[in-house]
Amino acid sequence: MDTSFLSATILLILITDPLGNIPLFISALKQVKPERRRRVVFRECFIAFSVLLTFMFFGKGFLEVMHLTDESLRVAGGVILFLIALKMIFPGEGGHGGNQLSGEPFIVPIAVPLIAGPSAMATVLLMSTREPERILEWVGALTLTMLVTLLVFLFSGRLQKLLGEQAITALERLMGLVLTAISIEMLLGGVAAYIKKLA
């Protein structure tokens, strides 16, 4: 699957799913004073960006140490994305609102795993190892994704009031549908590459 800068950005936005995460994000910030919320949003987005950037730059070395192939990572990435997509389309009971926090959230659950979850880590790892010569494009796509996430979280209260719970749920399921197709494409690409390698 050829990945352009635009498709990489869209893929990362779909995986981080800022719109779908609005209810959990608002719930996580309930105990935070209104005047501190903006600072918390900036801090958590920066931490998530740093985590994903680390995976992007040191992913190849990690794969070599663990003796993992590109094909296995593509298949694993496809499976993870498929499971994430299924949860987006068929959310379980209490999926978003289950975590009630006391005090100010730090790293968990907003930065990790809400933004920089396993699927996002696997995706940036896959992007950087498949085409390391395009690393600046992938950094740009990740930066743009973080800016979108930052803006959505900064205006999460207004967006929730403007769109309503039903519209946000519908958007999340639509994103899940697109992500399902992407995950299947990634999975098939990994299997095809492995079969070609054996032949």
Rank of each mutant, 00 (worst) to 15 (best):
I80P: 01
L83R: 03
I84Y: 06
K87A: 06
K87G: 06
F90N: 06
P91T: 07
P91F: 06
G92E: 11
E93H: 11
G95Q: 13
Q100S: 14
L101Y: 10
L101E: 11
G103I: 15
P105S: 10
V108E: 08
V108T: 11
P113N: 01
I115S: 10
G117C: 07
P118Y: 07
P118F: 07
A120M: 08
A120T: 09
M121P: 01
M121E: 08
V124Y: 10
L125H: 12
L126W: 03
L126G: 01
R130V: 13
E131K: 13
P132T: 14
I135M: 15
L136T: 14
E137M: 14
W138K: 05
W138I: 04
T143L: 15
T143D: 10
T145S: 08
T145P: 02
T145W: 03
M146P: 09
V148E: 12
T149D: 14
T149R: 06
L150D: 00
F155I: 02
S156A: 15
R158S: 15
L159G: 09
Q160L: 07
Q160E: 15
K161T: 13
L162Y: 10
L162A: 14
E165A: 14
A167Y: 09
T169Q: 10
R173K: 15
L174W: 03
L177W: 03
L179P: 00
L179M: 05
T180E: 04
T180C: 11
S183W: 08
I184F: 10
M186Q: 09
M186I: 08
L187G: 05
L187K: 06
